[in-house]
Amino acid sequence: MRYVQGGGLTDERRVFRETLRLEAAARFIQGDENAVIAHTLRVSVRSVQRWRKAWSQGGPRALASKGPASLPLLSDELFTVLEQELTKGPVAHGWPDQTWTLSRIKTLIGRRFHKSYTVQGVAALLKRHGWSCQVPARRAAECDEAAVAGWVKETWPQVEGPWRCSVPGSSSRTRPASR
């Protein structure tokens, strides 16, 4: 099952769900019906049906958590190294500007750690470790406001062209008076 956050369950959530399944197993032993168990545990009847089938075939051990669906490609130690590389900036790694993009980080991971991530995988990895998308909050220090204002006043009117003069009857929404 895929989750909106782009990852699997946290350890706490996995333990919580395992506790629910084991509580359902205790209710199976008591002979409770699936609908009653589902209502009490606030889960779907279909989930209880799947749990009962697994429990009948393998006992309570069949309801135990099997751990995360997959292990991350980068361990916490390697992610710490990645963070150090990211703080050096994109220019230090050969890019022409100071903007980290997901595709650049993906390339950096491939070059530095020889691991292959998708762009979406990089986004999930960064989000899992508390990183977020950042957009510059202010204009660049190199921006010359006077030059921009001069361009808007002098050059833009020439590029835009003269405004059309409106004369009575020139609008396409009005018809000339019929004679």
Rank of each mutant, 00 (worst) to 15 (best):
R2P: 10
Y3R: 09
Y3D: 01
Q5Y: 00
T10D: 02
T10I: 00
T10V: 00
E12R: 14
E12I: 12
R14D: 14
F16D: 14
F16Y: 13
E18V: 05
T19P: 00
L20Q: 15
L20A: 07
R21C: 01
Q30H: 10
N34L: 05
A35N: 12
A38W: 13
L41Q: 10
L41P: 08
V43T: 13
S44D: 07
R46T: 06
S47P: 00
V48Q: 02
R50E: 09
R50N: 11
K53H: 09
A54S: 14
W55L: 01
Q57L: 11
G58N: 04
P68N: 03
S70D: 00
P72F: 02
L74H: 06
S75T: 14
D76C: 07
F79V: 02
Q84K: 12
Q84E: 10
L86V: 06
K88N: 12
G89E: 05
P90Q: 10
P90C: 11
V91F: 00
G94Y: 06
D97E: 11
T99P: 00
T99S: 08
L102Y: 12
T107E: 05
I109K: 01
I109R: 02
G110E: 05
R112G: 00
F113C: 03
S116L: 04
Y117T: 02
Y117L: 02
Q120G: 07
Q120E: 04
Q120D: 06
A124E: 00
H129C: 01
G130S: 05
W131C: 03
S132K: 14
S132I: 04
C133D: 00
Q134A: 09
V135K: 14
P136F: 01
R138V: 03
R138I: 00
A140R: 11
A147R: 11
V148T: 03
G150Y: 01
W151L: 10
P157G: 11
Q158T: 08
V159R: 15
G161F: 08
P162H: 10
R164D: 14
R164K: 15
C165Y: 15
C165L: 15
S166C: 06
S166E: 13
S166M: 10
V167N: 11
P168H: 12
R175D: 09
R175I: 09
R175L: 10
A177K: 12
R179H: 10
